[in-house]
Design a protein around this nucleic acid. Sequence first.
DNA 1: TGCAGATGTTTGCAGCAACAAATGTCTACA
DNA 2: TGTAGACATTTGTTGCTGCAAACATCTGCA
Lengths: 167, 167
Amino acid sequence: MDVVHIDDPRLTAMGLLTEVYTGLTARMQPVFSAAGLSEIDFETLLRLGRSPHQRLRMSDLAAQTSLSTSGVTRVVDRLERDNLVARVACSSDRRASYATLTDAGRAKLEQVLPLHLNDIDECLTSLLSEEELEAFLAALRTIRDVVRPCATAGITRELAPEFGHSA
Amino acid sequence: MDVVHIDDPRLTAMGLLTEVYTGLTARMQPVFSAAGLSEIDFETLLRLGRSPHQRLRMSDLAAQTSLSTSGVTRVVDRLERDNLVARVACSSDRRASYATLTDAGRAKLEQVLPLHLNDIDECLTSLLSEEELEAFLAALRTIRDVVRPCATAGITRELAPEFGHSA
DNA sequence: TGCAGATGTTTGCAGCAACAAATGTCTACA
DNA sequence: TGTAGACATTTGTTGCTGCAAACATCTGCA
């Protein structure tokens, strides 16, 4: 018998979740890198694309992604250098600035998104039956509500009790 | 209507999973940092603790974690500096070395593990009913088998079709 | 035996992220 | 109006990571 319970069911459960999540993201990497994007680049473009006017304040972007505000500064620096995103001054608050999708950014998103959706289908949604998937998502929601009570930042508070890809 | 389908169910599913996984790991962070460990430090100690003789070759450690071999070199450097792990030459292959748990490492693991298990319970396993949990894990296994066909490295091939915490 | 290629580990290097401090702007209140 | 504190963003610094190259050792085959 070893130091730790080698088969503690809690460890197994958490390990399985970790394995699935990291395996899934690794599996989706190629689509992003083929487009010259990192995962966080894609997430940024996606969130901008889904937002009203395809723009978001830097700090709202930070709240929605798992990045710190300085992290967002540099992601947007890189995306701006590549002309996928532009900074626009906020007229009502001179401290703030919006990151907005450029035409090239929108095009890039539209190019990558279908491939990404296809990946998700292949490795996740198509693997379970209708009912299994629904139960799976319900379980995820239950857990999400505990570990991440307030996950909607920078979104008008009425819509989107669950706004996909909140990291 | 925006550029992208704001509520594409595939995006929502993936987003939910991301949210849960990152929320969960964030929620577990405090226990690790209180013990002066990073998450990867803990995972390393755990894997060593579960292995025969509490030791593993560097490259097997790399295969089990999500780190590259050079990443493992540096994690073990740090853990060795803190006296939680020691390198031991492999007698049958002079290129290789084992990372082994020191007494302090074992003690640290035994100190942290119950707290971690408690976290998992609080934020994951206790949130679902017996049946829900079983269905949830079954779904994870289904996905795991697709995204990570061969996830058992450096383990004697017979046991552990699912060896928790494989990153 | 001797050598070519495979394998295990480490090191040099470059990129990314967080934290804290700095800067500019806003808000509330006297 | 003037000022203190809050807030949005950026910059300086540090640490962690992967990739590629270097190095040591092993294996198989002539």
